[in-house]
C-alpha cells in the first residue's frame, strides 16, 4: 500500500500576534510537493511573517506547522535540513568571500564540503566571476543573487523565496525563472512571494492571496485567471459622441463623460467584444482607436483585495 505523499508544508490555524496586533490570523494552507506556490498580498499582509514562522524566525502564537509531515513543535530542528530561505532583507557577512559563504552554508546544513555544487549554484546565478570576491564588494543585485545561491546550495526540498527578484536586473530575473522551473521539475517545492505579478503569473502553479493576516483564497492559477478572466474593449472616437449609441446600449457598454471613449467589459457568458466592435463600425461612428486588454493576475489581485472574491459566482 502506498500512502499519498504528505504535503511539503501544512499549516493549521497558524496565528501570530505582535502584542495586540494580529499579523497572521488562523491560516490553513497545504502546499503540495513539487509545486510552485505564489503567496501574494500587499505590503504588511503577513507574507514574510508566514514564511518566518515556518523557517524558525518567528515564534508563532498558535497553530501547527508540518514540514513533509513532521510537526515543528515536536522536532524544531530536524525538518530544517530540508528548508532553504531567501530572506526579503539582504544580509551578508563581510568577512567572507562568495564561495566561502556558500561553503559555510553547506556546513550549517550538515553537508560535507562540495565545491562542485558551489560552482554549479554560482554558475546558475551568474556569480561565477565573483567567486573569490568579498561579499561586501558585491553590487546590490549580486548580493541578492548570493542570497539565492545560499538558499539553494544545500539542495533543500522546500524553498521559500521572499521577493527573490527585488532589485535584480531583467536578465537575471529571466534566468532565475528558468532555474526555479527546473528546480520544481526536479521535485523541489517552491513558495514564492513577489510584488511583480508577472513573475507569479509566469511561474506559479497555485496562488494564495493574503491580506491583513488572513488567507483570502488559494486557487489554481490557470483556473483563477479563467474565473476572473475578462476582456476589456476600449474604443476612442475622433469626435465626441453626444450619447451612448444604440449598439453600445445593447451591449451595456459605458461612454465616458466627455463622450470620447467607450468601454466594454467582456466576462464569462457575455457577448463577444468583437460583435460590439462590428456593430460600432456598421453604425459608421468616427472610430479613431481600438484597444483590448486581457485581465491579468494583477487585476484579479485588486478585485480580491477589494473584497470581490465571488466575482466569479456571477
Amino acid at each position: 500500500m502506498s500512502e499519498p505523499p504528505s504535503p511539503a508544508l501544512e499549516l493549521q490555524g497558524l496565528s501570530k500576534r505582535y502584542g495586540n496586533f494580529t499579523a497572521l490570523q488562523s491560516v490553513d494552507l497545504s502546499i503540495r510537493p513539487g509545486e510552485i506556490f505564489a503567496l501574494l498580498g500587499p505590503n504588511g499582509a503577513g507574507k514574510t511573517t508566514l514564511i518566518g514562522s515556518v523557517c524558525g524566525l518567528v515564534r508563532k502564537t498558535a497553530g501547527t506547522i508540518r514540514v513533509f509531515g513532521r510537526d515543528l513543535d515536536a522536532d524544531p530542528v530536524g525538518p530544517r535540513y530540508e528548508l532553504g530561505l531567501v530572506p526579503q532583507e539582504i544580509n551578508f557577512d563581510p568577512f567572507f568571500t562568495v564561495a566561502e559563504s556558500l561553503r559555510i552554508q553547506q556546513g550549517y546544513y550538515g553537508r560535507p564540503r562540495d565545491d562542485a555544487r558551489v560552482d554549479e549554484v554560482l554558475t546558475a546565478l551568474n556569480l561565477q566571476g565573483k567567486k573569490d570576491s568579498l561579499t561586501r564588494a558585491l553590487s546590490g543585485g549580486m548580493k541578492r543573487r548570493l542570497l539565492i545561491a545560499k538558499a539553494l546550495v544545500h539542495k533543500p526540498r522546500l524553498v521559500f523565496l521572499d521577493e527573490p527578484t527585488a532589485g535584480v536586473d531583467v536578465e537575471l530575473r529571466r534566468d532565475l525563472w528558468t532555474y526555479v522551473r527546473k528546480l520544481a521539475s526536479e521535485g523541489t517545492t517552491i513558495v514564492l512571494t513577489t510584488h511583480y505579478l508577472e513573475e507569479a503569473e509566469e511561474l506559479a502553479d497555485r496562488v494564495g492571496i493574503i491580506n491583513e493576516g488572513r488567507l483570502l483564497m488559494v486557487e489554481d492559477k490557470a483556473a483563477l485567471l479563467r474565473r476572473f478572466g475578462e476582456k476589456r474593449l476600449v474604443v476612442t472616437f475622433a469626435t465626441p459622441l453626444p450619447a451612448l449609441p444604440e449598439a453600445g446600449q445593447r451591449f451595456a457598454a459605458r461612454l465616458s463623460d466627455d463622450g470620447r471613449t467607450l468601454t466594454y467589459v467582456e466576462r464569462d457568458g457575455c457577448a463577444p467584444a468583437g460583435d460590439l466592435l462590428r456593430a460600432l463600425y456598421a453604425a459608421g461612428l468616427p472610430i479613431a482607436d481600438v484597444e483590448t486588454r486581457r485581465s491579468r493576475l494583477e487585476d484579479v489581485l485588486i478585485e480580491v483585495l477589494r473584497g470581490r472574491p465571488s466575482a466569479s459566482a456571477a
Binding site: C55, G56, L57, P76, L83, L85, N91, Y109
Partner: peptide, 13 residues
C-alpha cells in the same frame, strides 16, 4: 547584520 537568519533557519539547535 541580519546574518542571524542563516543560523536560525539552518538545522542548528
Amino acid at each position: 547584520q541580519g546574518t542571524v537568519v542563516d543560523l536560525l533557519v539552518a538545522p542548528l539547535g
